[in-house]
Simulated assay, not measured.
Amino acid sequence: MSTPFYVSPQQAMADRAEYARKGIARGRSVVVLTYADGIVFVAENTSRALHKVSEIYDRIAFAAVGRYNEFENLRIGGVRYADLRGYSYDRADVNARGLANVYAQTLGTIFSSTGEKPYEVELIVAEVGKGPEDNQIYRLTPDGSVVDEHGSVAVGGSSESISHFLEQRHQEGMSLSEALKLAVDGLARDPNGGPARTLTPDQLEVAVLDRNRFQQRKFKRLLGAQLSRLLAGDESAATEDEGDKPAPEADTED
């Protein structure tokens, strides 16, 4: 009779963590930064249909790297959780901390299960507060660990070198244009010390949680000409918002 193959629990967990880490490292990074009026999300993503950054609720957004089908399932679950909680109680009761805890439980359960592989995803859940000191940013790893981040955070392929770059240069109270350019510079860096790449607006997915929007929903995507102007340093482009423009007057001529 052959001896059953034995793997210690510690080794099994280490192998699962390494498996998930390698899957995440193959993806392009996502950067999240605070700025004077909110939180900006910047991802290297040429697709206009498959988003890495999405809205969850009024003041909450979600960013992810890794396997799209896995983090898309998590995003949908987060939207359902937020909608149900907001409907059952109050919209103010939906916050990033509660959503991060739900994701942590889901990821932790999957990671510990021997019947399925761990999710190859890394998540960021962020909520813009009424003031800069009230912002919340949480990073979640495949094993369900939650890290409370402040100021800046990067996830994905070159996250360690990008995070170090951002920590040295990010400052509180930066304008949107300054924060956006810093995020793009971080994404364009070569982790091996080579020359930086040039990232164009068409290669970027950018969104903000802007606390100054008069709408209840603070999430807004930055696209096209507005994004190009912000990357060029035009601060006036930050205030443009299609939803803020008044509806055209009806034509009263006969």
Rank of each mutant, 00 (worst) to 15 (best):
Y6T: 11
D37T: 11
E178T: 15
V94G: 01
L50C: 03
P132L: 01
P246T: 14
V125K: 05
L50D: 09
E167T: 13
I110P: 03
D58N: 11
L182F: 12
A14P: 07
V7Q: 13
Y35D: 04
A179M: 07
N212S: 12
T34N: 11
E178Q: 15
Q105I: 10
A225G: 03
L222N: 10
S145N: 13
E172C: 00
G66A: 09
L199A: 09
T114S: 10
R211Q: 00
V146E: 03
Y57A: 00
S29I: 08
V125D: 03
I24L: 10
L123I: 08
V153R: 12
N192C: 04
K22Y: 05
L230K: 06
I110T: 14
P9T: 07
D143S: 13
A92F: 12
A92N: 15
V53S: 00
D254H: 09
L107T: 06
R97I: 11
A196E: 14
F71E: 01
E167F: 06
E120I: 04
V128Y: 01
S236C: 03
V30N: 06
E205A: 11
L209P: 00
S158F: 09
Y87S: 04
L231R: 08
R59P: 00
R97D: 13
A247M: 08
L33E: 07
A247Y: 05
A20F: 05
Q11R: 13
Y6F: 15
A25N: 06
A20P: 13
Y68C: 06
G151W: 07
Y57T: 00
A92L: 14
E242W: 10
A154D: 07
P4Y: 02
L33M: 10
